Amino acid sequence: MQAAELFEQNIKPPDVARRLRVSLKSAYLWHHMWRDGGVQALASRGPSGSRCRLSPRCLEKLAGYLDEGPTAHGWVEDQVWTAARGRG
């Protein structure tokens, strides 16, 4: 909601972008949304994307694997989980 407060103070989108360390494109989009719908237009709509399709049991197993680390699962060259290793 910082952006809305700045827009209410007549701060221009380029200055909002700089102050909030966001892209100029985002600041102009926010300004447009704020101008058309006010503060509520900038309210978070929650996380985007699809919902998790893993069962609670699978989520528990996954958490355990991640806690054990890559080495426990045969990846000894470094300690980084990658998407490819996660699908492995």
Rank of each mutant, 00 (worst) to 15 (best):
W81A: 07
E8A: 11
L20G: 04
S48I: 12
A83K: 10
R21I: 06
I11H: 00
A4G: 14
R53I: 15
R85F: 12
W34C: 00
S50E: 15
Y28N: 03
A17C: 05
A84T: 09
A3P: 02
A72R: 10
S44W: 04
Q2S: 12
R53M: 13
G38E: 02
Q40M: 05
T71H: 04
D36F: 04
T82L: 06
G88N: 15
L66D: 04
R21W: 06
P70S: 08
A27P: 03
P14A: 00
A3E: 05
L24M: 05
A43W: 08
W81F: 09
D78N: 13
A63Y: 06
W75V: 00
V22M: 07
P56D: 15
H32S: 10
S55W: 15
R18Q: 08
T71Q: 07
K12G: 08
C52T: 14
E77D: 14
S50N: 12
R51M: 10
K25G: 11
W75F: 11
M33T: 03
G86H: 10
A43D: 08
G46N: 14
V22W: 00
H73D: 01
W75C: 01
L29G: 10
P47Y: 15
A63M: 06
H32R: 14
Q2L: 09
H32I: 06
Y28F: 15
L20K: 02
G86D: 12
V39L: 07
L66Q: 07
A63F: 10
K61H: 15
L42P: 07
V16H: 02
S44N: 08
M1A: 12
S55E: 11
E68S: 07
G86W: 04
L29T: 12
G37M: 04
L66E: 10
E8V: 04
E68C: 09
K12E: 11
V16P: 03
A41R: 11
D36L: 08
H73G: 04
V39F: 04
S50H: 15
Q2A: 07
I11T: 06
L29V: 13
I11N: 04
S50M: 13
G46V: 13
L42I: 08
A43N: 03
G88M: 15
P56E: 14
L62Y: 11
K61Q: 13
Q2N: 14
C58Y: 15
V39I: 03
R53Y: 12
V39Y: 06
D67M: 08
P47E: 09
W30G: 00
L42K: 08
S26A: 13
G69N: 09
A43G: 00
F7Y: 12
E77V: 02
P56Q: 13
R87G: 11
G46Q: 12
D15H: 06
A43S: 12
Q40E: 14
L66P: 00
G69L: 07
A4V: 11
A17W: 03
R19C: 03
W34G: 00
R35C: 05
P14I: 01
G69E: 13
S26R: 13
M1Y: 13
L42D: 13
A4T: 01
A41H: 06
A41V: 02
V16C: 00
W75K: 05
D67N: 09
W75I: 01
P13I: 04
Q40N: 04
K61R: 13
V76P: 00
K25P: 01
E68I: 03
T82I: 02
S23P: 13
M1H: 15
S26P: 05
